[in-house]
Design a protein around this nucleic acid. Structure first.
Lengths: 223, 223
DNA sequence: AATAGTTTCATACAATTGTTTGAAACGCAA
DNA sequence: TTGCGTTTCAAACAATTGTATGAAACTATT
């Protein structure tokens, strides 16, 4: 089987095209053209189109989850076993945001593929996706350790909203740029991560502000 | 042309199916079967599949935007010309959340169709969608009046995050239910709206909490 | 060199898609 | 009723899709 040249060429081409144009817009013929291989190669090496997609998704989601957990563990180690809430959420949303945003030339098809997969729910992926819940539970557990007084429901909502802000930012980055006339800088990934994490942390730790406290903040802001 | 029976039957069936199964999964034959009309009727009445989708989307996004603005105006009137930030965001995310969540039997295909449209970006919709930005600018302007001391960038991010939480909640409601073992109640729409609005308002009005203030909140929480 | 196993290739296949066609059915004014 | 414009219908069309086939090319072991 030599070096699996054809196989990996197909994987790379497929990931690139799917990430760029979405699943429904990309045909096997597009993929084999991009990979410079024969049409029949896909069915020969993967069995079917769906199995190709499934393999891509499994590989990539394992890698993403591993990176997230790596950062979570690092944060927990740094905090002596208990990570603080901001660090936990940063481990959750950081990897995907770093992969999808930033200067166009250094964005990875990997991360963008995962976003596509989370958007266009094609059958082969839908079947696998349930496992992601187990993965998220680990973060929920870490959050519970960080904020033991918070109710479970609030923690789940916080986790959910953090992912919401991250994913939506990736998907609608173009619109946000247009809406803000370029004022919102989507290339500054760490700033974006900071905003997402901060938004989620505030939601988890703060009470709703009174009119007075809002004014105070505004006043401090103005100085 | 009688009463446009066929035309409207197609529109209703198409909206239902698209909302349920997405654009890429629904064929014209599915639609005409659901509508109990002849296959050729779609091309006769709408010209093409894309024009059918476009007409659906235009109609619905006009209606949604009108409802949003109605609530915004109502909030501004109630506040004597200046709505407070929470009311503004509520006008932004309320209509779509009310349409998409709640008990399954009273969800409207209308709102779910709009979410589909915002997810699966098919060409006919992509072309129209730019107008939505003008619509959002009105909310950005209202937010600026409510929080004149905040920077424009922060306001845009707040608007963006509010939509992020709303849309993501709709799209991933099932996952959130599973993740939380049913603890997060997606049927209580007003509670969901409250959480989304509160999260966005906090991000817009509060500074990031220190470890000490977090403890204080936790302690207060515990009492 | 000969053979067996793997991989590639051009081509064909069957199914599905949106669209078109031309005749039939209908509605309704003259 | 006649005639005309509109609407419906069954059928066919052309294009595209994922998949299958069988021969050719290649690789590596004997």
């Amino acid at each position: 089987m030599a070096t699996d040249q054809t196989r990996t060429a197909i994987l790379i081409a497929a990931e690139r095209l799917y990430a760029e144009r979405g699943f429904s817009d990309v045909t096997l013929r597009d993929i084999v053209a991009e990979a410079n291989v024969n049409l029949a190669a896909v069915n020969y090496h993967f069995g079917s189109k769906d199995e190709l997609i499934a393999e891509l998704f499994v590989t990539r989601s394992i890698a993403l989850n591993r990176e997230r957990l790596r950062e979570l563990r690092a944060a927990e180690d740094a905090g002596g076993g208990r990570a603080e809430i901001g660090a936990i959420l940063r481990a959750l949303v950081g990897p995907i945001l770093r992969g999808c945003l930033g200067p166009a030339n250094q964005r990875s098809p990997v991360a963008r593929f995962m976003i596509r997969a989370s958007i266009e729910s094609v059958p082969p992926i839908r079947r696998i996706k349930n496992k992601e819940i187990d993965h998220l539970r680990k973060f929920a557990a870490a959050m519970k350790r960080a904020l033991p007084e918070s109710s479970e429901v609030d923690l789940f909502w916080g986790l959910h909203f953090a992912l919401a802000m991250a994913h939506h930012t990736i998907r609608e980055s173009e619109r946000l740029t247009k809406l803000s006339d370029g004022q919102c800088d989507l290339d500054d990934v760490e700033d974006v991560i900071g905003r997402v994490v901060r938004g989620a942390v505030l939601g988890l730790t703060m009470r709703v502000p009174t009119a007075k406290s809002t004014q105070k903040v505004a006043a401090r802001e103005a100085r």
